[in-house]
Amino acid sequence: MIHDLLGHILTVFLGYFAIMNPVANTAVFIGLTADETAQKKKKIARKSLLIAFCVITTFALLGNAIFHLFGITLPALRVTGGILVFLIGYHMLNGERSKMHKPRGEDKADEEDADVAVSPLAVPILAGPGTIATTINFSSTGGWSESLITVAMFALLCVVTYFFFVSGEKIVRYLGRGGINIVTRLMGLILAVIGVQMLIEGVAGAIAAS
């Protein structure tokens, strides 16, 4: 019994680790926050992970009910998320910050920080369609115990990811401005490809369900 429980806990954690990939997301975080101070980076990291945790917790506890209530299908979520991720990756690939999280005016620094934390970091990078699908898959296999294990493992991964994000400052100093520009474009390419992959999976899922 205990062995099966530990095996399930490990499976959930490794599943989240693979789908969220804190190592790769650290490079994305560096590219998106290259112009920010260390204090602002910590603020953005905390806010994005907190939002992602709230989103995943909601879907872990009420995911199936939410989808049923609004008539949302997973393929539709993947298509929408794929388009959003692709657009963000496209802007990064061109060395720009997406207008979705770049408000006009220099007096909106706090709003800009909040926007970066919400999109694209929290959603859809950290709590994207793949993470939500994984959450619903893990939490819907049993009762409340599976849901609590799912939430606990995602919380643990959020803590791990936060330390990855915070240590990214050392990587920034090592790479320099030119290195960050390269990382930004490479991560933009990766995000664009991920977005296309999400879109393909969403269309394929919609066709299969029809």
Rank of each mutant, 00 (worst) to 15 (best):
A117L: 11
A127I: 03
L191Q: 05
I171Q: 01
A109V: 14
W144D: 10
Y174A: 08
I136W: 09
G195V: 01
E106L: 11
F13L: 14
A38R: 14
E201T: 07
D113V: 06
Y162C: 04
R78E: 15
V79L: 13
H68W: 08
E36C: 08
L77D: 07
I44R: 00
L156D: 02
F67W: 07
D110M: 10
P120N: 08
R177I: 08
R104N: 12
A133D: 12
L32I: 10
G168N: 02
V151S: 03
V118T: 13
L157A: 01
F29V: 02
I171F: 07
F165K: 01
Y174V: 08
V196T: 09
G195P: 06
G168L: 01
S119V: 15
I30F: 07
A209E: 13
G179E: 02
M153Y: 03
A155P: 03
F29T: 01
I9G: 00
G179M: 00
T58A: 12
D35C: 05
A122E: 07
D35Q: 11
R46Y: 13
L14N: 08
L14W: 13
L121K: 03
I19G: 08
T161I: 04
V196H: 08
G82L: 07
M20Q: 13
K41I: 02
D110Y: 08
A76K: 03
M153P: 02
I182W: 00
I149K: 03
T184W: 01
G15F: 10
I194K: 04
G82V: 05
V85R: 00
M153D: 02
I171V: 15
A27M: 14
A114F: 14
L199F: 15
F67H: 04
F17R: 00
V85A: 11
G188M: 01
S98L: 04
H91Q: 12
I88R: 00
A127Q: 03
T37L: 09
A34L: 07
I136E: 06
M1N: 13
P129V: 03
R185G: 04
K42E: 14
